[in-house]
Design a protein around this nucleic acid. Sequence first.
DNA 1: CAGTGGTCTAGACCACGTG
DNA 2: ACGTGGTCTAGACCACTGA
Lengths: 244, 244
Amino acid sequence: MPSRATVPAFRPLYRQIQDLIVQALADREWLPGEMIPSEMDLAARFEVSQGTVRRAIDELAAEHLLVRRQGKGTYVATHADPRAFFRFLRLIPDDGSVPRSRSEPLECQSLRAGQEVAKALAINHGDPVLQLRRILRFDGEPVVVDEIYLPADLFPNLTLDQLRASDRSLYTLFESLFGVRMVRAEEKIRAVAADAVAAQVLGIEPGTPLLSVERTAYTYGNRPAEWRRGLYATANHHYFNELG
Amino acid sequence: MPSRATVPAFRPLYRQIQDLIVQALADREWLPGEMIPSEMDLAARFEVSQGTVRRAIDELAAEHLLVRRQGKGTYVATHADPRAFFRFLRLIPDDGSVPRSRSEPLECQSLRAGQEVAKALAINHGDPVLQLRRILRFDGEPVVVDEIYLPADLFPNLTLDQLRASDRSLYTLFESLFGVRMVRAEEKIRAVAADAVAAQVLGIEPGTPLLSVERTAYTYGNRPAEWRRGLYATANHHYFNELG
DNA sequence: CAGTGGTCTAGACCACGTG
DNA sequence: ACGTGGTCTAGACCACTGA
């Protein structure tokens, strides 16, 4: 008679199947964009009923790890899907238009994690990290300047040239070059005044109010794999959020 | 043979049941906090299997319209539940503490909807609305000043005294006094400089960067029932958001 | 047409809360 | 002990896609 009050004494089968599928994803058994085996095949493989596999996949699809397509199959989600882009960048033009966005990398250097970065990435103070700086433009107009920190071991030999050569989103690049897929993120938002550097880069007056958006992004298994601070110009754009 | 290409030609049973349950909620058949009939009872009432009712309830629980409690029953969600509070107010102290929040109503007047308010509330220009102004304090410190617009027909005879008499959240008040339950909301966030009024109310310097948070809140059936603009002081607090 | 996911049912059994 | 929601199964049939 166990006396563990806090630990859920019981783990449903479909959650165990869910874990096995996530493990297979983390092990790159199926790559982003690829189709995974049918529900029947997975049921046979895990020796459970199709309904149990179905429930596991349902939850993973709700978390955007998988994508169901009726009549075709179930696919590994990918940032190459344009819908994924706006799930992570919530800045949109006030007029409702859909901008052509373009990332302009400025810098990519190796350095050691400071206190703040180490804590956010759950690594040790002094561990090697990559620092990127980049501008994001909407239809040519600079709207965001980002400072991005990555744990170096997950992104071996990432160079400024690689970043410049890509016309896709950063997360798409991380996914295809390093197999690191960002699955969810948390953001802390504040209002700050533009400093001289940000003002120059964004083409605004120093002191202009900007959104400061600090983000920690997580890959499979809730492992933090990126920390960034963005400064968003909100003269003609706004951060959109849905409260469910 | 219908030729509607855009309309989903097929509406699953569980969605129809879902609609019937939402209708019953909108009709106040079961009030916030009350228990609804068991799955078996509902299955008998709608003449479907228990599994179909279950699926309908699952989705409504995911949307926070209902709350399941194993071993007890299924309940109508209510803003009286403290968890609901932080679903709609995403501002939290930087130090992670849980503040004692208190709403301080300043003003409550009837007026006519201007263009912006009318559009947000999906009513006509010139229709009667209520305007509230209030300060929100965390542990006594002013952190938010809000300007709130309500369609007058949904909130008959709301007075400043009623607002002042309550120590609960606004949405809890709306729910208990008028049976209007806010179900979801959309927010547009910008960085702005504090004007003289906001600076005075929040006890900060004019020109200090603030978050401008414009919210449209919806009740059952996606009907807009509130529009507000809040100015959030983010010196010691931040807006927290989770990107799924 | 075959193969995939999507719906619906019926029944057995488990976990939880309350008497 | 009872009633609630939660899990798991098996099977039938529907809807969608693409060859």
